[in-house]
Write a protein that binds this DNA or RNA. Structure first.
Lengths: 339, 339
DNA sequence: GTTAGCACTCAATAAGAAGGAGTGCTAATA
DNA sequence: TATTAGCACTCCTTCTTATTGAGTGCTAAC
C-alpha cells in the first residue's frame, strides 16, 4: 500500500510528465507548491516507487518517468474527473443541434471535433447497422442482367448493392419477388435477414416463380460488406505533433495500422460498455507500444451501437480525454436515439 | 540546344539519381558502360548543364542532382515508355475480371494496386456522378416528419439523403410527388435535376397537391454533397518510406494536405485529358515542393469521368509510373463502360 | 577538344572536453 | 527514527576539433 506522500509524489510526477514530456527530477518536485519536504526525501520515495514498479528511469542519472504500471494505477485510483470548460461543452453540443443532419455527417464531424479538442487522433466506429430493421426492400433494374438491390432501414440507413439478374427472370417476376420479400422482411433486423430468407422466403418464391437461382443469396451477402459498421477518423496527423512520435518508424507502423480496417477493429473492446482505457502494451500491438487508447460506447436503448476511441501517447491527458469522451458519447447516443 | 553528349550525361544522372537518391559524381558516370570519355570531360559538361539550369549541386563540392527544369526536360523529351512486366499486367487486369464487382470496390482496389506497383501514393477521383442519369426516384418514410429520398442512376449509383416531411403531407401526397417526379426526372442527368425541377415539376406538383413547401429543394441539394465525386487513397504511408521524407515536418504537411478534400482536389488538372505531369513547384503547394504528381483520366465515351493520380517524390520513377497509369486508366475506362 | 593532376571545399564521422541535470549514499540533524 | 544537507558519480547534451573522403574547378599537358 502506498503512503500518502508516495501518492502525492506519484501524482505530481505523472501530471508533470503528461504536461512536459520530460523526465521529472527531485528538485523540480520539491520546488512545487504544496510539497513540504526536501529533494532528498523525494529521492528516497522515488527510489521506493521505482522498486514498486510505478516509476522508471530513462538512464541511470535521469529523472523519473511513469511506468505502464504507474499509469494504470493513476488511471484506476487517482483520476478525478476534470471540469470541462464551457467553451468545450458548447462546441460539442452545437454538433447535435441540427436535427436533420444525417447520422453519417454527425459522426464525421464528431470525429473532427474530438481530435481538435483533445489534440489526439479520434476513431469512431459507426453505428452497428446489423440491428436496424428493414423498412423497405426494392430492386431497380439497370441494364440487361444487372440491377441494384436497395434496403432502407427503420433508422434511415440505406444499403445498396449491384446484383445480377438471371436471364429467365422477367420484369414482373422481379416485381413479384420484391413484393414477397417486403411482406416477409419488413421489420426484420439486418443480421437475421439471411436466416429468415432461408427459412421462409425461398420456398414461397420458388412456388410463385418456379425457379430460384442464386439471385437472392447474393443480395443478402450485404452483411459481409459492413462487418461492423464504417470507421471514421479525425486528426490522423495529430500524432505527428507529439514528441514521442518523432521516430519515423513508429509513425509509419501506426499509420499502417490505421489503414488496415481489420486491424483497427481490434482496438475496440468487444461487448464492454462504458469507458475503457488501454495503456501501452495492453493494446497487444507493437505499433501501439507507446500509445494509450481510451474507448467509449454510444448506445440506443439497451443495445450497444457503436464505439468512440481516442488514441494518443501513453503520456496522454487522461483526465481531459475521459471527460470529453464521456460528454461526446452521451451526446451521440441522444442524437441517434432521436433519429 | 543540348549536344548528344550532354543529353547522354543528363540521362545517366537522372536515371542514377532516381534509382539511388544520391548526388551523382563525375567519376561514377565515367565508370558507366557506354561512356567513352573521362571524368574531367564529364565535369566540364556538367558545369555547362548546371549553367543551363538542368542540374544543381547540394553544396559546392557535391555531385550533381537534377533540377526541376532538368526533370521537366527529361519528362518532355527523353521519356521512353517502359516495357512493363507481364506480372504487372496480370495484376492490373485481374482487377477487371469480376463483372459484378461494384464500381466503388473496383476503384478502391485500383488505388491499392497502384500504390503497390509504384511504391508511391495513389489518389483516385471517383467517377463524376453528375453525368449519370436518373433511373428511379423514391421516398421511403422513416418516422413522423422524416423520410429517405433515394435516387438510382443508370449506372447503378445510389444517392440517398435524409429529408424532413412537412406535417401537412399525407402518405398519398408523397406517393403522388414521387410519381410526378419519376415521370419528369427519369433520364435527366443529376447535374440538371435542380434546374429541371424548378422549370417543370414544381408547378405540376403544386397543382396536384396544393402546397409546395421547401420539401423538394432540400432533396436535390444532393449536388452539394458530392462536389466532384469521392476520393480514394492507396498507400498513404508509402511516402514515409522515401528518403526525401525523413523530415517529419514535410510529412505532416503532406498528410494534412491529403486530409483536406477541398485541397487535394486542386492537384487534378481541370478539363485536361491524357497524362499530365506536374513537377515540384509546378504543383503550387508548399507541401508538395518536393513532390511530383502524375495524373491520368479515365472516361466513358466522350465525357470525362474521373482522374487517377500518383504522388511521389520529384525523384520518382516517371517511366514506370506513366506506363502503369496508362494501363490502369484504360482498364478502368473499359470496366466502367461495361457497367 | 580531351585529359591528367592538383589544390580546394564541404559533409560526415569520430573523438575529446565541458557543462549540467540528476541520482545514490553517507553523515549530520531535528 | 525520519528528514535533510552535502558530495561523489553517472550519463546525456552540446560544443570543439580533427580526420577522412567524395567531389569539384582550374590549369597545363597531350
Amino acid at each position: 500500500m502506498l503512503t500518502n506522500r508516495q501518492l502525492q509524489i506519484l501524482q505530481v510526477i505523472i501530471d508533470d510528465f503528461i504536461a512536459t514530456a520530460q523526465p521529472v527530477g527531485s528538485r523540480q518536485i520539491a520546488k512545487k507548491e504544496g510539497i513540504g519536504f526536501s529533494a532528498a526525501t523525494i529521492r528516497n520515495e522515488m527510489a521506493d516507487l521505482e522498486e514498486l514498479g510505478y516509476l522508471e528511469k530513462t538512464h541511470t542519472s535521469s529523472g523519473r518517468v511513469p511506468s505502464e504500471k504507474g499509469y494504470r494505477f493513476y488511471v484506476d485510483h487517482m483520476l478525478k474527473p476534470q471540469i470541462i470548460t464551457n467553451q468545450d461543452i458548447i462546441t460539442i453540443q452545437s454538433l447535435f443541434q441540427d436535427r436533420m443532419m444525417e447520422t453519417e455527417q454527425v459522426i464525421r464531424k464528431s470525429a473532427d471535433i474530438l481530435s481538435e479538442l483533445t489534440t489526439y487522433t479520434s476513431i469512431i466506429l459507426g453505428p452497428d447497422v446489423q440491428l436496424h430493421k428493414v423498412r423497405r426492400f426494392s430492386i431497380v433494374p439497370i441494364s440487361v442482367g444487372s440491377a441494384v438491390a436497395i434496403i432502407v432501414t427503420d433508422h434511415g440507413h440505406v444499403e445498396n448493392r449491384l446484383i445480377s439478374i438471371p436471364e429467365n427472370y422477367s420484369l414482373s417476376d422481379i416485381e413479384k419477388v420484391v413484393n414477397i420479400l417486403n411482406e416477409r422482411l419488413v421489420g426484420v433486423p439486418l443480421e437475421q435477414i439471411h436466416k429468415k430468407l432461408e427459412e421462409e422466403a425461398t420456398a414461397v418464391i420458388a412456388q410463385h416463380i418456379g425457379s430460384y437461382d442464386g439471385l437472392l443469396t447474393s443480395i443478402f451477402d450485404l452483411n459481409k460488406y459492413h462487418g461492423e459498421g464504417k470507421i471514421y477518423y479525425g486528426g490522423k496527423t495529430n500524432m505527428l505533433k507529439q514528441p514521442e512520435f518523432h521516430d519515423l518508424n513508429k509513425v509509419r507502423m501506426l499509420m499502417e495500422l490505421m489503414e488496415k480496417t481489420s486491424q483497427i477493429q481490434t482496438i475496440f473492446p468487444h461487448h464492454q460498455s462504458g469507458i475503457q482505457i488501454r495503456i501501452g502494451s495492453e493494446n497487444h500491438h507493437i505499433a501501439m507500444e507507446d500509445c494509450s487508447v481510451i474507448t467509449a460506447t454510444y448506445t440506443i436503448g439497451e443495445e450497444q451501437k457503436g464505439s468512440i476511441a481516442i488514441i494518443g501517447p501513453t503520456r496522454m491527458d487522461y483526465r481531459r480525454v475521459v471527460s470529453i469522451l464521456d460528454l461526446m458519447s452521451s451526446g451521440l447516443s441522444r442524437f441517434i436515439e432521436r433519429h
